[in-house]
Amino acid sequence: MTAALALLCILLAGLSLMAGPVWLPPGEVLAGIAGGDGTAAIIVGDIRLPRTALALSIGATLGLAGAALQGLVRNPLAEPTLFGAPSAAAFASAIVLAFGGASALSLALPLAGMAGAFVSVALLFLVAGQRAGITVLLLAGLALNAFFGAATALVLNLAPNPFAALEIAFWLLGSLEDRSVVHLALAGPFMALGAVLLASQARAYRALTLGEEVAASLGTDVARSRLVVAGGLALGVGAAVSVTGAIGFVGLVAPHLVRRAVGSDPARILLPAALAGAALLTAADTLVRLVPATTEIKTGVVTALVGVPFFLWRILRTRRAEEEA
């Protein structure tokens, strides 16, 4: 399953390098990657390669974060927004867009986004306390999430001019358009560090299958795990959101897509979920380039449009299983 997903990611990445206003055959893509100064090399090297790499790494971060969070809170419905970090990152970025005079591609944006994510995690543990149970932590995260959502709406509301408001609104939809290698260099290390932190708690997710109390009796420091996961989320998802804007549902859907094939072990699912997230986001980001429209459709719109029906289908299945039992 993991090998198949990895292969799928490679194929989709290849497709993503080929697709766009100028359709490049595989040969030219390879030649472009190898270097040179032709048009193909510029399109592949400067535009599509960073975009594809970002789609893969951000998708993987979201998928991994979803699987990790589901393991931590022992609930298949958990997703990266639960702790409020993504909405805080979006809020901070919106402020920069509205009042900082920055464009959607400026580097001030990811920096502000990551700062926002960190502030939200600090607030989370300040409110909930370091040894808080998962319910208190989730409630605090929910409150922060709602607060930063409302604050973002307020920024939109107070935007100095309609253009700024429009730019924020479009940015919030989530897109990988025109992102450069600088974005990758900026967010990449944070996403990598976040992934390391999230994956380092694999043993804890396993132990937590039996509940927090048994996990503790098995030698797991549950409070420490929570702190590490929240930190990993702020780093990884904060960096991801600050580059792309809000990309919904990848974090929720990716673990579900692979759970049936990989089994329920909350640790064994981490890598496949990351690969599924990478494949999903790369596919969505390629799709938006193939749809003929005057304005490019935002990637975040497509992921949510695919995500919500899946979510409903999942609820229907749960309902059916309950009715049969």
């Binding site: 022992r74 299958t209 509940g211 109390e213 048994v214 009796s217 089994g263 329920s264 072990d265």
Partner: peptide
């Protein structure tokens, strides 16, 4: 080793 009163399985292991 500790066996609590109620068994809890979050995942279908």
């Amino acid at each position: 080793a500790y066996l609590p009163q109620r068994s809890e399985f979050a995942w279908a292991l």
